[in-house]
Structure formats: structure tokens, C-alpha cells
Computed example of a mutant assay.
Amino acid sequence: MNEIDQPMSKDLQEEQEFWRHPRFRDLGLLKAKFTKHRYDRHTHPNYVIALITAGAERVKIGRETVVAPTGTLLVVNPEEWHDGESGCPDGWSYRTFYPQVEFLTHVAVELGRSESPIFRQSAIDDPQLRDAMTLAHRLSRSDDILAAETAMLVALRHLILRHTHPQSPPEFVEHSNARRRMAVYQELVEKRLCFSIDLQQLAAAAGVTRFQVIRDFKKVADLTPAAFIRDRRLRRANALIEAGASLADAAVGAGFADQSHLSRIFRAAHGFTPGMLKRAVA
């Protein structure tokens, strides 16, 4: 079964499909409907561009919370912490794009930009862009690959030229001792993903107390150390699956207790299962 033929996963009134663009293989796409699902706070190394097609979604991106109604385009820059849940009683449906940084940067360079795009706002109300993104998403399932490629580039051109900073760098949390310590914490976490990690280990690596570790994660990332470690394990598992590992091996290699543990955490963060990702990249 190829990825275009994949059946839609259904859970009560919730539906999800995930596939790859036929021309741009590093561009993932999701079509989903959620009623009760709630995304845990997480990050992506890539961009997330979500077009709300029905209902409304409530999202916290960084420290900003927005409610995006039908027709709104939600944009999350790489490494931005975000969650997501229903913003109305009937839930929400959306079409989502997951472009890798290298891919979107290449498109931006073709348009005369010299940097990776940084989006100015999280929620975009632009009817022309909405229509272009809808067409691009729909044609990504078409057998006409040239039409799919053209529609995607037209939509991304509009998105980049009208809704990104021309050349300015992203706005990070101000540099401080907390941010420098976060780099130490992250290095330790990446090295010990397959092992138990506790606050004392993080504190010892940075030469601070366990209480300071908690304050640093709150100040810089607005979340707990446990949530940060869970996110990094998810990213490791995702990379292993993309590289061809079995779901069981990806779970072990990323530090999860077992495959079911990975599946539960993965779906809570991403809205679809690791098995769907496995089939899409096969």
C-alpha cells in the first residue's frame, strides 16, 4: 500500500492522515479532525504551518495563546514550544504542512532572501493565502506531480514574501546565565536519552542546585525538565523512524520503556501515531 492509499485512522470522531509530498520528500503533510485530542507542549526542528478548515483551535506558542477560527493559518517557527486543543465545542479540522528548515530556506533564497524565514505572527488571516495553501495541500495527493509542485511553490512564495521578517533574526529569550546553562542541560540530555536522567545530574553538570535547574527551564522554555526530556526523546524516535528503524527499536533507541510507551507519547504530541509516520516514509 503506498502512502496515497493509506486509510484514514479513526478514533471516535477523530481522524488523521499523514503523507509526504510527491515532489518535496522532506515536506510532510497532515490532514486531521480532532474533538477531544489535546497536544502536549512540544517542539519541532522544522516549521509547522496549519490551516484551520473547520471549528477552532486554541494554541499556546511560546508565551502567546491564540484561538484560531476557520480560515486562520497558524505558523510555528522551528524550536518554538507549542501545544494545541479545541477552541470550540465541536473541535477543529486542519490541513498541516511540516517543511524542513533547509527546504523552506532554499525556497526563500530563490525569492531573494538570504536567511531562513522567521514568521512575524503566529496566526495569519489572509484569504488569498488560505486559498493557495488549501490548493497546495489538496494537490499534494494528486497524480499530477508538476501541478502539486507548482501549487506548493506559489503558496510558499505568498507566505514568505508577505508574512516573514525580510532579513531580521528570530527574537530569542534574552541572553543570560540561564540560557547558557540550558545549553549544558541540553547536551547532557542528548547524551543520556537512553538512560535515566534526574535533576541532580542536570544540576551537577551546570554547577547549580536542583531548584536552579527548575527555574532555568521555566525561564527559558516555560516548561519542566521532564517535559523537555520527553520532547527530546520524541525527536530522537522520530529521527530513528525516518531512518528506517522499527518502532520497537526506535522506542528503545530514544529511551522509552517500550513501543506502547512511545506510541502513547508520540500521539499526544503529534496527533498521529508513529506507525503512520513509519508507513509514510517507507
Results as ranks from 00 to 15, higher is better:
182 M>D: 02
166 P>S: 05
203 A>P: 06
201 Q>G: 13
157 R>E: 15
161 L>N: 07
181 R>Y: 00
180 R>A: 11
194 C>I: 13
157 R>K: 15
205 A>S: 05
189 V>R: 00
169 P>R: 10
158 H>F: 08
173 V>C: 04
168 S>Y: 13
209 T>I: 03
177 N>I: 12
188 L>G: 01
168 S>D: 13
166 P>T: 12
166 P>M: 03
166 P>Q: 09
164 T>A: 03
207 G>Q: 11
168 S>F: 15
170 P>T: 05
199 L>I: 09
156 L>E: 03
162 R>D: 09
177 N>M: 12
197 I>Q: 04
189 V>G: 10
208 V>M: 06
158 H>V: 10
157 R>N: 15
209 T>E: 10
198 D>N: 14
175 H>Y: 09
197 I>C: 04
164 T>D: 02
183 A>Y: 09
196 S>H: 07
177 N>W: 04
180 R>S: 08
199 L>F: 01
165 H>V: 14
201 Q>W: 01
161 L>S: 04
204 A>M: 13
181 R>F: 00
186 Q>F: 01
209 T>S: 15
200 Q>W: 02
170 P>F: 02
180 R>N: 09
203 A>F: 00
159 L>D: 02
181 R>K: 06
178 A>K: 07
186 Q>K: 05
173 V>E: 07
201 Q>K: 05
184 V>S: 01
